[in-house]
Design a protein around this nucleic acid. Structure first.
Lengths: 199, 199
DNA sequence: CGTCTATTTGAATGTACTCAAAAGCGGTGG
DNA sequence: CCACCGCTTTTGAGTACATTCAAATAGACG
């Protein structure tokens, strides 16, 4: 099992000696998901924090009109979970689903508590994770209030470089809050006839 | 000084005996603000958590196009502060301004730390405040992604009952992410000619 | 190869914005 | 108390942005 990426992800936030690294890795479990497999379904309890080693997930909900809205994508080196459900162990508002076949590490709620008891400095890690989630949400709000669909698409590309080549367009449309049809039009507009111009 | 409302606000989340109530109230300061006065300006450090006893505040930012976007209103019994700036003591992304003449209680960052040392159960209070802020943000995102301006206005009315009668319409428009002109049209449409129909 | 889903294209429609002008409203000073 | 000033709200016309619906095309997978 290769813990390299997840350990360095944690070490970006808190220092860990070798013993602590071993303590941490003994609490996490490797798990693979197939394309389209659900990690969490809405209204279930979120039992895991999931770290994506390889692949892509989406966290989303279906609104009253039946439209799916994607809150965020989680690609390599991202964490994903329904924060509220995980912390309070109440039914999740969101579902989490693999868009690509994915490899993950998961930290269960039980091990999460044990980890904090055993290595108290993970309090800081969790607090910063929480803060970062909050800041990410804020950024989405500030952008959605003001930006046009085209600007939002550009933000998406900057936030998730290359992801537009990996996943279906309708997932991106659900993230941007626009229809797949309109996203198609935007993308066409953004592709100047670069090839033809060379003739 | 009447601490009744703020103490019951805290007691909705954690139990406090009389001694703890006294400890808490000794850390907070009453402060009044005039209409249009700034509690916090963007790029300054947020030194206070502010609890609104009476009046109305807005927390907002100005985007690149020069448009003001209101993140939330704080009326009676609401807390308002730039969470990120307060916790990390870094420059604020948002500014906070009184819309009505307002009476508040403020908890400074320094007293916030002392309070947590002296009465550790305030850890829980802060954690829940944080969670609630997070959930509020989530709700805004989920609504903004899917709802039309008219639906958003309805949500606003449900979230802040009667507030549309107290504050200028342009503030509401800035909250909804639409122009004041368009909000005027929406409101007209939502007022069926009830009086005339009676004739 | 056939089926199913995703994407593209076009026309018609709806939603929200800009600009400009007029009307309303609150405060201030004479 | 009234007149005036500045700011907010309303109204209308024209425009831009984004959606719906339907049909055609392209891709993915067994």
């Amino acid at each position: 099992m290769n813990f390299e990426s997840i350990v360095s992800n944690v070490r970006n936030i808190i220092d860990l000696n070798d013993e602590e690294v071993h303590g941490f890795t003994s609490f996490i479990e490797a798990k693979k998901f197939n394309r389209k497999e659900f990690i969490l379904m809405a209204n279930a309890i979120c039992h895991y924090q999931t770290y994506v080693v390889k692949g892509c997930m989406k966290i989303s909900y279906v609104d009253l009109d039946g439209n799916e809205n994607v809150v965020k994508f989680a690609v390599e080196d991202w964490w994903v979970y329904d924060l509220q459900s995980f912390i309070t162990q109440t039914p999740a508002r969101y579902s989490i689903q693999a868009i690509e076949a994915s490899e993950t590490f998961q930290l269960s709620k039980i091990n999460y508590e044990l980890l904090h008891q055993k290595i108290p400095k993970f309090e800081k890690f969790s607090r910063i994770m929480f803060q970062n989630s909050y800041i990410q949400l804020q950024n989405r709000i500030t952008q959605n209030l003001s930006a046009t669909a085209e600007e939002k698409y550009q933000h998406f590309q900057e936030k998730y470089p290359g992801l537009e080549l990996r996943i279906p367009q309708k997932e991106i449309a659900a993230y941007l809050g626009i229809t797949p049809v309109f996203l198609s039009i935007i993308r066409k507009k953004r592709t100047p006839g670069s090839f033809i111009k060379l003739l």
